[in-house]
Structures are given as structure tokens and as C-alpha cells.
Nucleic acid binder design. Structure first.
Length: 724
RNA sequence: GCGCGGUUAGCUCAGUUGGUAGAGCGCGUCAUUGACGUUGACGAUGUCGGGGGUUCGAAUCCCUCACCGCGCACCA
């Protein structure tokens, strides 16, 4: 028996060494796996932010995926798990800008585009190794030879190609539309990057002028200088006589022309049942303006959330202008009512800036635009038929081509798709994939490279970071080139993101993969929950409750952390992180260690192929039943149940009962019974170790290396036990 | 407003197709010189949120109510 078993199991002396040995073995790369492997199993790691640090959410996600991946590898599949990192455009640029501001007192405009992009890029590259080594510490069996970064050459080529092809298909277009403008970050942001905050605010009811017949209610008085109409419900008898009339008036020293329109979007119960229509500063007003052919170009608030309108309000901040208008109304005797209300204010997730809806020229992906799909493998969408991106997203899941076993998340996904609007993909920052479009006067050129000739100017915007993420399952496999990897490993097999990004990412991968490949991006999606702290709060910097998984690993070992995160946590529900639970599994790792110690000590010189007596055959049969059960759990991604069952078998059955029962036999005089028991103990041990490997890869591998008569060089590539 | 969850032992949570409830932690008592400083045994009378229904049988399926949470939209 190896001397190492005489001391308690020490994860810190083991894990790094084992990981290096695995990496050196080449088995993370599917091309090097031993034996014939006909079926592939592919997973794309959700790429962590390149400048980020590993948090418990990653730790959970990595544990989950690695358990699945290791199981499939042991099942004899040709397994590829692709690692990567995301440049996370806005977050990364904001961080570097902040540093520069702090250290040099300069803004990005002082530094210039080229220099800033260079510096952000360097910063990102410098942080890269840190997050990647943390992922390694989780034991993740990733094929590092296929590592991908969203801004590397191959991924950039994929992004530009995707843009150009969608532009040519008419699915990417430029349009003047109301977007969510973040005045603080000076960029557009997507709906998904908005958080709504409840705030107290005042609802003003007023008249534009003495001779205007309909009182109007608003919380945003300052925008009223941009009004072009008053809308009422078509069935509202109070205002019916005014519909269609036009009023010329002066409001707060600004000449306005207000038409009364009838639109069914108006809620007759709210306020006075009449609303002032400000097309340039509200999405629904914009839509109403489109329906009623009203002018939409009356912009009264600029990109810095300041008034830009002839008259006394010009240059004022929106909030100050609001008060000024209120004063004016009171003086004129036009204010009818002021009441406190609570309303949800849209703010930018990253900067906290209050969103100002503004019409802007932006790039969009049209999700309802009809196009002809040349090739489709998605059931229900014929090659060469006309379809839309929205149809692809819906059909992929409805047809079961993408299996989302969790019904509740399937509903969320469908619900989201039915409310989906065109996706604004341009961002007014500098770090990221720049939009491959050039302008010269009225001419426009979209292509992979700048057009020939002079005076072409490239669009200054970059793409939403989710654009490149949406290509991830196939850009990582070498698309747009027709690579062998792409052919062999796409669609990927499994994806397990947090429910936070179901819509943000999952649906968009379906969109992109559907359009560019006519395939789904993955076969199965298991949405997982969030890891919260012991009180059930989200981990956040401001709360200071962030538990560092690396600290936990240092203290208890990776295997213990993985078990602590996996056991007893139904996939999809939130998890409360409990250090004591992790501690318990550190004990378990040591228990396995001592089981091994006892069995190896008691079987020295024994013949492992000794034929078993009836009692011992029954023990094999008993374990076989567990193998069947656990395998079924694994096939259905019930990771948490499989892990728990094995924990109980190893501790309560094997250690507490079988080993205890064995002691008299091993010390007894019946040599046949002893030999049989020795042989069976070795089988039970090695089978248990194999079954536990997906969850606790390190301690099981370390034990395996010391087992007599092992059949592979690594447990990692051993065969998953079968019902014998 | 639309949608999705949750409510099970002191705490945190499992419970796969309906078959008279489980784990971890904590707590208590006892034991333990022999694989295990990280051991073992024993200890839970839980109205499975309330009510109703389907069923031979419901934590599980259906309806309804209550409370807690989340997402989306709107918020004039």
C-alpha cells in the first residue's frame, strides 16, 4: 500500500499535480482519447468575462458541466468541452476608463479611440490568465488547445461574416428608432441591460393653455414642449367631439401645434384619460406617431439629458426644466393637480444612469423580417422556405430539436419570444467588434474589409457583446470556415446557463445558429439557478458578501466545493451557499481515502480475480443496482441525485456496514471466505471510485492511481461501470 | 397588467412516472484503544401553506385562496 494513505487526504497537495497530469495526458482533447469513440458530446463553456474573477456562480456552472462532461467521457463518447473568455465590451471598457480617469485624470476623448482600444485590449489580455487558472482549479476538463477569445482573429472573422451575411439577407438594417439611451454611459443599451427602480415622483395634471379643452396628466412635464398631439381612447365620450381638431398654442414660451387623436393604446381610466404625445421621447408615443402620421423629429432633450429647445428651458437639466415648467403652469393657473405617485424608473444596469428614450440611427436585427433559409435541419422549417428569425427561435424549441426539459423555463422562453422586438445591436463605445459598414456621402458599403477608394468612413459603433456571444457554439469551432470540428461537433450537446441569461444568450444562440447554419446550437438546455449567500441574497460587491471559491478550495479542496454545490440542489432552483456543507464533503473525501486505506491494507497480496462466494456476489449485485440507478440519473441530468446516492452508498453502506462486517472475515480462519471478501472489496472500491469521479475528480483519480490492476492510465478515461 | 416560481423536520433543501415522507447541518444522549483527530449508534407525534376536487391511494394531478419571491411589459 502506498505510504500516502497513512496520512489524511490533503487536497492541496494533490489537486494541482493531478490537473497537470490530466492536461499533459492530452485526454482533454477528444482527438487523443483512447479507444473507438463513435458518438461525440460537445459543450461550449459559457465564456467568463476576461477581466473577471471566478465567483461561485462560475464554480457551480463549472462543476455541473464538468460532471456531465466527465460522465460522458467515461461512457466512451468523443467528448469536447471548449473553453473561452468574453471581452465583455462595455464592462471592460468602463473599467479601464475608470482607471485612466483615476490615474491620469483623462477621459476617453482625451486619449482617443485607437489608444483607448489598445489599452483596453492589453488590460483584457493581462487579466486573461487569472480567470483561466481559476477555471483550471475547478478541475474543469476543458480542451485548452481549442481555447477561444471573443476578440481573437477567428472569432472576429466570424462576427464580421455573420454581420455581412445578415445584412445581405436584409435582416440587419439601420433605422431611426427610439432606443434606450444611457446619458451617463453615453451609449445605447438593450432592454435586457435595464433595471427598473421604484421611485417617488409627481403626476401633474394640467392644461397646455387656457383655450385647450382637454387636461393632460404627465410625470415628465419637461418633455411637453415636444408634444405634437393629445391622444384619447376612441370610445371616450368626454373627448369625442375634439378628435381630429388641431390647436395652435404657446406652451411655456414654446409654440406648439397639438392635434387630438384617438388611439386604443390610451387607458381612459388613467389620469384624465388623455395623454400628451411626445414622439421623440417615448416609445409608445413614437409608435402612435407612426400610426397617425405625426412628426417624429421634435427632439427637445439631448444626449446629455439636457433641454435643447428654443426658449427659457434651453440647456437646463431635465429635472430642473420639469420644475421650471411646473412653476410656469402654476403662475398661469393651468396646473390642475399635483399628486405623489410611485413609478418605475428605467436605469442602466452598469452605470445607474436614468434611461432617456431618444430617437437614434442604430443598427437592428429584424426578428420578424421574412427571408429564405437556404438550408435547415430544424424540423418544421424546410430548406429553401420563407421564414423569420422569430419563427426559428420558436420552432427550434417547439419541435424539440432543442430540448428544454424544464417546462417552466420553456414557458418563459416562449413568452419572451412572443413579446420580442427588433434587437438593437449597435453600441456607442469603442472596445469591441466594430460595425463593418462604411459611408461616403449617401453611399453605404457593408463588407469584411474596407472598400477601395478614398473618403470612406467606417461606422463608429461597435456591436453589442451578445452578438459575438450568440455565435459562440459555432464560432469556437472555426466557422465561417468549413472545418472538420464544425462538422463533427456541431450542434453541441449540452448547455447549462443561469436563468438570468436565458433570453439574453440562449435565445440568441438559437437565432444565430438557425440563420447561419440551419441548425440548433445545442440539443439540451438545462437552466440552472443562482448561487446566493447564506441569507439568500445575491452576491454583490456592494454587499461585500462575495465568497471567493478559490478561498473555499484552499480550505476544503475542489472536490468538496463541487459536492457542496451539486448535492441536493435541484437544477433550476437557487442555491444557498453553505460553507458547512462544503466542510462535510471534505470529510467525505477523507472518508473515501480511509476506505481505500483499509481495503488496500486488508487485500495486500490478495488475488483480485478470485471467484466470489454467494454472499459476496450479492454485494456485487447490490452495487449493480446502484449503477443502473445512478446511470439513469446521469442520463437525465439529475446530477444532484446521482451524487447524493453515491455519497450514501460509500459512507453508510460500504464504510459503515460492509467494511465493519468484513473485519471478522478478514481476521478469521476461513481462507476461502477471506479471499472472496478481499476480491469483492477491491471491486466495490474501484466501482465506487469510478462512479464518484464525475463529481469528485481529484480524490478519485488520486486513489485510482494506487489501485492494483487498474486498466487505464487515468480514471478520467476509464469505462463507466455497467451492470455486470 | 401578462407570465414563472416557492411554501416539506429547528435551519438549508431533496423527493424522477401518484403507492402511507427523506438528506445535510445543527441539537441531545450514549458509545468508541484497531481504516477514519474528519468515528459510530440512537433520538423528528413534520395537519408536506389553507380549503376543495379526481383517485383504491395525493407532498406529487386539477380548482381555489393566502403569503413570499422573480421575470416581462406598462407606467401618459
Amino acid at each position: 500500500m502506498d505510504e500516502k494513505f497513512k496520512k489524511p487526504y490533503d487536497p492541496s497537495a494533490t489537486e494541482t499535480r493531478i490537473y497537470e497530469a490530466w492536461e499533459k495526458s492530452g485526454y482533454f482533447n477528444p482527438d487523443n482519447l483512447p479507444g473507438p469513440r463513435n458518438e461525440t458530446f460537445t459543450v461550449a463553456l459559457p465564456p467568463p468575462n476576461v477581466t473577471g474573477i471566478l465567483h461561485l456562480g462560475h464554480a457551480y456552472e463549472d462543476s455541473l458541466q464538468d460532471a456531465v462532461v466527465r460522465y460522458m467521457r467515461m461512457q466512451g463518447k468523443k467528448v469536447l468541452w471548449v473553453p473561452g473568455a468574453d471581452s465583455a465590451a462595455i464592462a471592460t471598457q468602463a473599467r479601464v476608463e475608470k482607471n485612466i480617469q483615476k490615474d491620469e485624470g483623462k477621459s476617453r476623448h482625451d486619449i482617443g479611440r485607437e489608444e483607448l482600444v489598445k489599452r483596453v485590449g492589453e488590460f483584457a489580455k493581462n487579466s486573461e490568465s487569472s480567470i483561466l487558472s481559476q477555471v483550471r482549479r475547478m478541475g474543469a476538463s476543458l480542451d485548452w488547445s481549442r481555447y477561444a477569445y471573443t476578440l481573437d482573429d477567428k472569432r472576429t472573422s466570424a462576427v464580421l461574416t455573420a454581420f455581412v451575411r445578415m445584412y445581405e439577407a436584409g435582416l440587419i438594417y439601420r433605422g431611426n428608432r427610439i432606443v434606450n439611451w444611457d446619458p451617463k454611459g453615453q451609449t445605447t443599451i438593450s432592454d435586457d441591460e435595464i433595471v427598473h427602480e421604484e421611485r417617488k415622483s409627481k403626476l401633474y395634471t394640467f392644461l397646455y393653455s387656457k383655450d385647450f379643452p382637454i387636461p393632460v396628466a404627465t410625470t415628465r412635464l419637461e418633455t411637453k414642449v415636444g408634444d405634437v398631439a393629445v391622444a384619447v381612447h376612441p370610445d371616450d365620450v368626454r373627448y369625442k367631439e375634439f378628435v381630429g381638431k388641431e390647436f395652435k398654442l404657446t406652451f411655456c414660451e414654446t409654440p406648439l401645434s397639438i392635434r387630438v387623436i384617438a388611439d386604443k393604446e390610451v387607458d381612459p381610466e388613467y389620469g384624465t384619460g388623455a395623454l400628451g404625445v411626445t414622439p421623440a421621447h417615448s416609445i409608445i408615443d413614437w409608435e402612435m406617431a407612426e400610426r397617425h402620421n405625426l412628426p417624429k423629429d421634435k427632439i427637445v432633450i439631448n444626449e446629455y439629458a439636457k433641454m435643447s429647445v428654443e426658449g427659457p428651458l434651453n440647456g437646463l437639466k431635465a429635472v430642473d426644466a420639469r420644475e421650471k415648467v411646473a412653476e410656469w403652469l402654476r403662475e398661469q393657473g393651468l396646473m390642475e393637480k399635483e399628486e405623489e405617485v410611485t413609478q418605475n424608473v428605467a436605469t442602466a444596469e452598469r452605470t445607474g444612469g436614468i434611461i432617456e428614450p431618444l430617437p437614434k440611427l442604430q443598427w437592428f436585427i429584424g426578428v420578424d423580417r421574412v427571408f429564405t433559409i437556404p438550408h435547415s435541419e430544424i424540423p418544421g422549417i424546410e430548406s429553401g422556405s420563407e421564414t423569420t428569425l422569430k419563427t426559428i427561435m420558436r420552432t427550434a424549441v417547439e419541435s424539440g430539436e432543442v430540448s428544454m426539459p424544464q417546462e417552466n423555463f420553456r414557458k418563459v422562453y416562449m413568452n419572451w419570444i412572443s413579446n420580442l422586438h427588433d434587437w438593437c445591436i449597435s453600441r456607442q463605445i469603442w472596445f469591441g467588434h466594430r460595425i463593418p459598414v462604411w459611408y461616403k456621402g449617401d453611399e453605404i458599403f457593408c463588407g469584411l474589409e474596407a472598400p477601395g477608394g478614398t473618403n470612406w468612413e467606417q461606422d463608429p459603433d461597435v456591436l453589442d457583446t451578445w452578438f459575438s456571444s450568440a455565435l459562440w457554439t459555432f464560432s469556437t469551432l472555426g466557422w465561417p470556415e468549413k472545418t472538420l470540428d464544425l462538422k463533427e461537433f456541431h450542434p453541441t450537446s449540452f448547455m447549462s446557463p443561469a436563468y438570468e441569461i436565458l433570453t439574453l444568450w440562449v435565445s440568441r444562440m438559437v437565432l444565430m445558429s438557425g440563420f447561419h447554419l440551419g441548425q440548433v446550437p445545442f440539443r439540451t438546455v438545462m437552466i440552472h439557478g443562482l448561487v446566493r449567500d447564506k441569507q439568500g441574497r445575491k452576491f454583490s460587491k456592494s454587499l461585500g458578501n462575495g465568497a471567493d471559491p478559490i478561498d473555499t478550495i484552499d480550505k476544503y479542496g475542489t472536490d468538496a466545493l463541487r459536492m457542496g454545490l451539486l448535492v441536493g440542489t435541484a437544477i433550476g432552483n437557487d442555491i444557498r451557499f453553505d460553507e458547512d456543507k462544503v466542510k462535510g464533503y471534505k470529510h467525505f473525501a477523507n472518508k473515501l481515502w480511509n476506505i481505500t486505506r483499509f481495503i488496500l491494507e486488508s487485500t495486500e497480496g490478495a488475488d483480485p480475480h478470485m471467484s466470489l462466494n454467494e454472499t459476496d456476489q450479492a454485494l456485487i449485485a447490490e452495487l449493480d443496482a446502484i449503477v443502473v440507478d445512478v446511470t439513469l440519473d446521469m442520463e437525465n441530468y439529475r446530477i444532484y441525485m446521482a451524487a447524493e446516492k453515491l455519497y450514501h452508498y460509500a459512507w453508510d453502506r460500504l464504510a459503515a456496514e460492509l467494511i465493519e462486517d468484513s473485519k471478522p472475515i478478514l481476521l478469521g480462519t476461513d481462507e476461502t471466505a477471506k479471499a472472496s471478501r478481499q476480491a469483492v472489496l477491491l471491486v466495490l472500491l474501484s466501482t465506487t471510485i469510478k462512479l464518484l469521479h464525475p463529481f469528485m475528480p481529484f480524490v478519485t483519480e488520486e486513489i485510482y492511481q494506487s489501485l492494483p490492476g487498474k486498466s487505464s492510465d487515468f480514471l478520467m478515461v476509464e469505462k463507466w461501470p455497467t451492470n455486470s
